[in-house]
Amino acid sequence: MKRKRGVVVIGLGNPILGDDAVGLVVASELKKRLVDVDVVELSASGLAVAEAMLGYRKAIIVDALVDEGAAPGKIMRLTLGDLRTSPRRFIGFHDIDILTSIELVKTIEGESFPEEVVVFGITIQEPGCYQEGLSEGVKEAVPKCVELVEEECRR
């Protein structure tokens, strides 16, 4: 078995879909701060996300999250187990979903899949329009989320 690298942080989002870009914004901040951690900005879903985690001991995903009723800008730390049982819906469709992808890649590439996957979700209002830039509430959550991910990397 190949020796695994340390931690990978994967920021997900679409840079031109308003608040959906928040995962990318957090990742881009982290890139400037983290030295020993690989930070990936990814505009992808399903399989591609699961594949990006291969070869690391721990993977941290940062993504926008639609949680009906929650105010925008709330940060939640979730595990894969939480996602499985949660009624919360991360936006997007098509491709196979991330949990199935992870299970698949884990089944096939078991040894090189991370032992730990942590997800930081930042609540947003579901976007309906192409636009650049984050809304105020979501923008305010970015520095806090950056700190939380930094702490998580040290854990």
Partner: peptide, 9 residues
């Protein structure tokens, strides 16, 4: 859409 999928079905 260019968004990703969690859980994404």
């Amino acid at each position: 859409c260019g968004t990703h999928a969690l859980p994404g079905q």
